[in-house]
Every structure is written in C-alpha cells, then in structure tokens.
Amino acid sequence: MFKKAFWLYEHMIILEILFNWMLLSLLYALIGLPMSLLWGSTRVVNVAQGEVIMLGAYTAFSLLIFFGINPLYAFLVCAAWSSLLGFLLYKGAFSMFIFKHKETEKSSILFTFALSNIVINAGLLMWGAQLRGYKIMTEHIVLPGLVVSLNRIFVIIVCFAAIVTILILLHKTWFGKIVRASIDNRVEAQLCGINPDVVYLACTFISFLITSFSGILISTIYDISPNMGFFYTMIAFLVAMIGGLGNIKGCLVAGFIVGFVQTAVGYLMSGGVALTMVYFMFVIIICLRPEGIFNWAK
C-alpha cells in the first residue's frame, strides 16, 4: 500500500487526488447541511433526503433529455417543486410530529422511510433501474500537473457558494440568529417571543431547497438511477452526526473528513472498498458519538 502511495505521488497524481478530495468534501458537506439543519432545529429526520436528491437529479436529466433545455435551468424548476414539497410535508406531517407526537424523531423516521420507499419504487416504475446520465460542461481545463473538466469545477464552486451563503445567513442575519437560538434552546427561544412554527417552516424550506440543488449538481458529474438516493442519505447522516446536529460549521469540517477517507481509501485500495469504509464509519459514529465530535466547541 505504501509503495502504491509513493507511486501516486511520483506520478503527480497528488494534485488530482487533492482536487477530488475537495470536490467530495464540499459536495458531502452540502449534502449533510440540510440533514443537520432540519434535524438540529426541528428534530425531524428526513430519511427520504436521498430521494429528494434523486428527484433533483432526474429534474435536470429530464429537462435535457425530454425538453432539450439546458439542465442548469433545473435550479429554477427544483426551487419551485422543493419549496412546495417542503411546505406540504411540513404542514401535512412534520408539524404534527413536532408539536403533537411525543417522539418526533421516531415518527419522522418511519414516515420518511415509507416516503422514500414510495418515491424509489415510483421512480423504478417510471424510469427503470438502469443508470442514466448526461454530459455537460465537459471541456477540460489543463493546469500544471492537473487536468479537470469544467463540470467538476462548477460543482465545487456552487457547493462552496451555497455553503457560504447558508453560513452568512445563519451568522450574519437576524433570521439566522433566531434559527441558531431555536437550535440551541428550543424552549428559551419561545420564551423570548420567537414563533417556532415560522422557524421550523423556514428550516424545512431551506433543507429541501438545498437538497434538490445538490441532486442537480450530482447529476452533472455522476450517472443517476432511482436507487442512487440511499448512499447519499447515509452520507447526510454521517456528515451531520460527525459535525453535530445543527452545527453547520461542523458540517463543513465533517465533509472534509468523510471526503478524505473515501478519497484516500479509493486511491489506495479501490472504490468499492472506499464505500464499505464509509458505511463502516457510519456504523462506528452512531455507536460511539452520534451527538457529534464538534459539539462541545461550536
């Protein structure tokens, strides 16, 4: 294994590795963010997050294949349906779990589990199980020691921009302060006059919006299928738990950790083993410290 590592370094693949690490890290951080935000603020766990990602991916794909529209317009389409979906789910189910059920997490897990099941099978019915894909922005940029395609740079930039936007929203705005307060101490926030319903609805919106966007981004660089969602749901859990529920900065760091593990194991051994490693991390983290490694010092 060390011989191989040295070989990789010698052949200047190190830059390529770093680039891929950066890509995975930001992408995973973006995927973990909605889970961390939603779970941290409302205690609603969205097991169907991977399926929302899948729907976002298929939105982009369908726009190109069936309508001949540049898949980047998918951002607008996704903004529309994800907002509506978030609103309906919140009013129809999540608010019941939050305010009326004793165990919000358990009810929401079962509900979204059932939902994800429905969406996956509906997707299999509509599109079949095979992998589909499309190619955009495949022009290559040649840098010293590194050749990257434009779509990957695009994903990195958008992920970074989205994460920074959310961080600014949370830490530099009045609204963000209210959300952070609600995450920190739900009861005290209400005692200060903050209406929890508004905060939770907003968090649901943001969560679904970002999730659908991440689906679009994934579709630009990977192939898609109705079964793609499960893996990303696992990533969302892993990143959110390592970073700490409700801790978005932690999410970013967690993204880099998971990205590192997958990239390193992927290059040193194989992609398949890397996936198993990620699942293994998932199991370990839940057993040991699901509240997050970074939760003492936010």
Partner: peptide
C-alpha cells in the same frame, strides 16, 4: 448502545453495510 432514533438509523444502514 445507540438509543432511539440513532438505533433505527443504524439498522437502516446495516443491511446495506453487510451487502457492500
């Protein structure tokens, strides 16, 4: 050791972990 929702989520990923 994982309680409540954490255990549920863990089992959600367990079968897939074994398969993988």
């Amino acid at each position: 050791r994982a309680r409540g929702p954490y255990f549920i989520i863990l089992t959600y990923g367990l079968a897939e972990f074994f398969r993988n």
